[in-house]
């Protein structure tokens, strides 16, 4: 039996964090696939990374500043044009509080 890296309950929890939801069969399938993928990642433990600086960008630019000047931006109508629902110049969403 191969080691379980992530349980079905954890898959459901991570899905909640990611704002996703799965049915029973999908949860089963994802749990099996994610375990396979995460087991493969264990390969990285073979590498000694003591004292190695993490690289998050291969070509890291620092402080890409620009002048603090007002530039053209999208007009509100264009920004709202793709919204599933909007009203009065605002994005409309389902009720957040009772």
């Amino acid at each position: 039996m191969e080691k379980i890296k992530i349980s079905k309950d954890e898959v459901t929890h991570v899905a909640h964090l990611a704002r996703l939801e799965f049915g029973e069969a999908e949860t089963e399938k994802f749990t099996a696939q994610l375990n396979g993928i995460l087991r493969y990642m264990d390969k990285l433990n073979e590498v000694d990374t003591n004292g190695v600086e993490p690289v998050t960008h291969a070509i890291a630019r620092k402080n890409a500043f620009r002048e603090d000047a007002v530039n053209a931006s999208l007009p509100p109508e264009a920004s709202l044009a793709n919204a599933p629902e909007s009203r009065g110049g605002c994005f409309l969403v389902p009720k957040v509080i009772e």
């Binding site: 898959v11 899905a15 994610l34 990285l44 590498v47 990374t49 600086e53 993490p54 690289v55």
Partner: peptide, 26 residues
């Protein structure tokens, strides 16, 4: 999205994302 969320989640960040970024340096 699931792999990424898991790899960045509390308790797993060092083992996955940080480790991977270090090997990326190598």
């Amino acid at each position: 999205i699931m792999i990424g969320t898991y790899a960045l989640s509390s308790g797993y960040y060092d083992a996955y994302y940080k480790k991977a970024s270090q090997v990326r340096g190598l």
